[in-house]
């Protein structure tokens, strides 16, 4: 369990983390989601005692990380930047880390094969690809067989197989082993299929903290897609203070703020024929965009000719495009 209270970090005049409090519970995967520069890495570095909080406290399993007598068996961490001497082989890197806790070569060999590094373990880390570096970082985090795992952007640079492997690993450790897993990412699609619980951070402040489904439903309004030959008639009858209607192509409407049942009843009362009535649920991506739109540190300029982002949601029936990054994922 990780507990942060009023955690604050200031670099010069810049407030990187602004008085955040949260709890990461064991037995589930907690996602730490936020745009670049939101304070995810800084928070994780403070948990690991690498950065000193300007104010506030953070404890792991009841005490500050540095106070544990066997830190690596309590917490394993993969932090964002590579933390490996480039001139050393992967195996020696792991051996040196393990030796500090009296962990033998047997466990080192175990994590090497777990992370799929067998063929490169004797090579110097300097020549590693981003993906191999990530695997080595995960191996180092696992070498102490820790109760708590903190992973900063673990799937960065991994191939699809590696992404799937990390996803299954963290789910297994949390659900079956009851360990605490705290995982940061800026990839919403990854979080949607990996995390059970979400903490969303933007500009150093927590903007949402709850189960994944709750965070999504709270941040996105109900949307219904309606197709009718009498679309303009229907739009007129639906329009109201709480409901907005966006006309689409011929005969198509997107209704925000009303459920499918409400739309259907209004249509029936007015004897309007419907060809389609589809409730749309918001995706995590939409929730994320609506939550963080105020707090993105680095906005990208819209590309010329790009339509402005609609509040559009994805169909509850997964459309192939949205599901593409998670193809092959059937664990849920």
């Amino acid at each position: 369990m990780i507990e942060a209270h009023d955690l604050t970090k200031r670099y010069g005049t810049k407030l990187a983390v602004d008085g955040i409090s949260f709890t990461v519970q064991p037995g589930r995967v907690t996602g730490f989601l936020g745009p670049n520069g939101a304070g995810k890495s800084t928070t994780m570095r403070m948990i690991m005692g690498l950065d000193r909080p300007t104010r506030g406290t953070v404890t792991v399993n009841g005490r500050p990380y540095a106070e544990h007598r066997s830190p690596l068996t309590e917490v394993g961490a993969l932090l964002e930047a590579k933390a490996v001497h480039t001139g050393r082989s992967a195996r020696n890197h792991l051996r040196a880390i393990a030796a500090t806790h009296g962990i033998g070569d047997k466990r080192v060999n175990e994590v090497i094969s777990m992370t799929g590094l067998d063929t490169v373990a004797k090579r110097r880390v300097g020549g590693f690809s981003l993906g191999m570096g990530q695997r080595l970082g995960i191996a180092a985090a696992l070498v102490g067989d820790p109760q708590t795992l903190i992973l900063d952007e673990p799937v960065n640079g991994l191939d699809p197989e590696g992404v799937l492997w990390v996803r299954n690993l963290v789910k297994y450790l949390a659900a079956s082993e009851g360990r605490t897993v705290f995982l940061s990412s800026h990839l919403m699609s990854e979080m949607a299929v990996t995390a059970d619980h979400l903490i969303v951070i933007g500009r150093g402040k927590i903007i949402a903290d709850g189960p994944v489904d709750t965070v999504i439903s709270q941040a996105t309004k109900a949307t219904v897609r309606v197709r009718s030959p009498q679309a303009s008639d229907l739009a007129a009858r639906l329009a109201g203070p709480a409901i907005t209607v966006t006309p689409g192509e011929e005969g198509l409407l997107e209704v925000h703020g009303a459920t499918a049942a409400e739309v259907g009843e209004i249509a029936a009362r007015s004897a309007i024929v419907l060809h389609e009535l589809t409730p749309l649920t918001g995706s995590l991506e939409d929730a994320y965009m609506s939550l963080t739109s105020e707090s993105v540190e680095y906005h990208s300029a819209a590309l010329p000719g790009e339509p402005s982002r609609s509040t559009g949601a994805h169909a509850a029936v997964p459309d192939p495009a949205a599901a593409a990054p998670t193809t092959g994922e059937d664990a849920r």
């Binding site: 005692g49 690596l72 880390i97």
Partner: peptide
């Protein structure tokens, strides 16, 4: 960072 994580 790895060294200081191992011996905080």
């Amino acid at each position: 960072r790895s060294s200081l994580t191992a011996a905080p």
